[in-house]
């Protein structure tokens, strides 16, 4: 736990650890109440060392008992954003005969230039020859390899979970791209096309536009949008509501249609994370499936290629291929 870069010490996804913590807290409060009674009655008692400061301040502070909740409560709540992608409801937008709409929503929302697909729908092989579609945004790792290797602190993990990039700081060494095991970082190899509307907003790491030349960019997990009470562009774009976005602090997530209890939803549906063995601790969870809820045949291969419609409006935009031609 010590190696976790986030300030927040508990693993949200670790149910037993969370319960254990609450259990300890309850015990602690109980013993303190009892302790006060004993102190009030006898005036003095042997106390366990770590409780001394709390007990003293209690005695000095006031005689009336402070409600346990108020003591426990942190000033302000820390969001811990998470994403759940229900693969049972993802068919790579084959059924509507369009390019993946999550990718499209993201491209439109962030002015991501070709060939950037900050959320990309990969086609994975299934045992038996079939395929499944897996949309992969930045995994918002809680042990992020990219953050560890950055020489100038241009990328970091926020306390809320998302891993962000400061394009004003990035020196373009691409070490983070070499370190990312999910191929989720994108380099601006040439001067990117910038639509006029992208210039209206000031640059912010949570928004990442206007994009700069010679730096890295990627999915920012849309915490700015989520804080405003809306779903990220990809979740908004998904026609089948396969993408849930939520908060471990409140333990809820929503796909825009229903609200689920996040931890329970993950457990009940055997959620997994990509490359769990690398211990990157992603905040993106997948519920296994191959689009069966939409009636997709796993042997039905291929999806429509991604398009960058906004880019067509800009003349002479330079594009490149992610795969070195």
């Amino acid at each position: 736990m010590a190696e976790q870069p986030t300030g927040d010490g508990t693993l949200p996804e670790d149910k037993s650890a969370e319960d254990g913590r609450r259990e300890n807290l309850r015990k602690w409060q109980l013993s303190r109440r009892r302790l006060l009674k004993i102190m009030g009655a006898a005036g003095l008692a042997a106390v366990a060392t770590p409780m001394v400061p709390g007990a003293i301040s209690k005695i000095l502070g006031a005689s009336d008992e402070v409600p346990a909740e108020a003591v426990d409560k942190k000033p302000g709540r820390l969001r811990r954003w998470a994403m759940v992608i229900d693969l049972r409801r993802c068919d790579g937008c084959q059924s509507i005969g369009k390019p993946p709409q999550c990718t499209l929503g993201c491209i439109e929302g962030h002015f991501a230039p070709e060939p950037m697909q900050w959320i990309q729908v990969f086609e994975y092989d299934l045992p038996g020859g079939g395929t499944q579609f897996i949309p992969v945004p930045c995994q918002s790792c809680q042990n992020p390899p990219c953050v560890n290797v950055c020489p100038v602190g241009a990328t970091w993990s926020t306390p809320e979970g998302p891993v962000l990039i400061d394009q004003d700081r990035c020196i373009g060494c691409r070490m983070c791209m070499a370190a990312c095991p999910y191929d989720r970082r994108f380099f601006t190899w040439a001067t990117p096309p910038i639509p006029p509307e992208a210039l209206l907003a000031d640059y912010h790491p949570e928004r990442q536009f206007p994009l700069q030349k010679g730096v890295t960019s990627k999915c920012d997990f849309c915490p700015d949008i989520a804080r405003g009470g809306r779903l990220p562009y990809c979740a908004q774009g998904c026609p089948n509501s396969a993408i849930y976005y939520g908060d471990f602090e409140e333990d809820m997530a929503t796909n825009g249609e229903e609200v689920v209890e996040l931890s329970k939803f993950l457990s009940e549906n055997q959620a997994y994370r990509l490359k769990e063995e690398l211990n990157t601790k992603p905040r993106v969870y997948y519920i296994p499936g191959h689009g069966q809820e939409l009636g997709r045949d796993p042997y039905d291969e291929g999806r429509m290629p991604t398009e960058w419609p906004w880019e067509k409006k800009i003349k002479g935009a330079k594009t490149w291929n992610r795969s070195n031609r």
Partner: peptide, 15 residues
């Protein structure tokens, strides 16, 4: 002037 666009490097083989 042009950026690393003029090299053969791209996202997948980035060095």
């Amino acid at each position: 002037r042009e950026g690393l666009y003029v090299t053969g490097m791209r996202d997948r083989i980035l060095w």
